[in-house]
Amino acid sequence: MKAIEVKDLSFAYQNATRYAIRHVDLDVEEGDFVVIAGPSGCGKSTLIRALNGLIPHFYEGKYEGSVILEGVEVASKQPHELFKLVGTVFQEPESQLLTFSVEREVAFPLENAGIPRDEMRRAVDEVIKRLNLEALRYRSPNELSGGEQQKVAIAAALVSKPKVLLLDEPTSNLDPVSANSLIWLLHELNLQGMTIVVSEHRLPLVVEFSNKLVVMDSGMIADVGRPVDVLGKYADKDIIEVPDVLVIADQLTRAGLYAGDLPLSVGQFLSSTKGLKPVI
């Protein structure tokens, strides 16, 4: 079943002279792990805002086409009806953390929706356990590291048990190890059945776990497909960050020194080059 269906979507912010996204068509199946890449200003964030209903409900502008999320037309539903279907995590955790304890932070979306206390407590306990946040439960989000803050933001996004999790450049303020563990967390959630859509510049960290890569440029979808197929087209371009292992394998393939699928990780490279080691 389709989790998200974007049909011929265009959007221009109020007073803007041009469309931020134009004629976007995109299908996301349930259980997909979709990565959206592309230069800054290409429309990634706008697309994410359109998927969770911030566009058109909070951002005014010219809206054409449609977004169907879990069978529901986003533009025709109120935001509070959408929050059970989709959770969102933004680039800077500081911009979305509001309270003085991790527990309250995670409970906030439910409090806001007027969920009964018992039910709220159960849901908060569950998500805190699921994301291993017990040790941080009573700490203030403001004193946590960037990686921990993003984890809290994810917990708050998941507490309403949505089927789809959207993340807008969630690692851009994290160091490599924190970024890596955030991506692993997304991978685990995906294995448990969560549909993940994430916009990201740091592709080498994430493409290994995704099954669909979307490249956007100037508000339009330039490419969509299996990460290895899409990245192959960009190995010698400077538009998105292609993993070094793939760039290397691409060049070695042309020189007749590498056979097999292009790799997305060091491990994949090594398993395709069995037998090459003695040569070196």
């Binding site: 490599p176 890596n180 993993p243 760039v247 290397i248 060091v266 090594l270 090459l276």
Partner: peptide
């Protein structure tokens, strides 16, 4: 130091290369 080894370095080490490339071009 809590950092990730760059892919080029990890690859060169795993293949036992004697050269020490640090960019994709050097590796190739």
């Amino acid at each position: 130091a809590g950092l990730l080894e760059p892919q080029v370095v990890a690859l060169a080490k795993a293949l036992g290369m004697t050269a020490k490339p640090i960019t994709a071009q050097e590796f190739v």
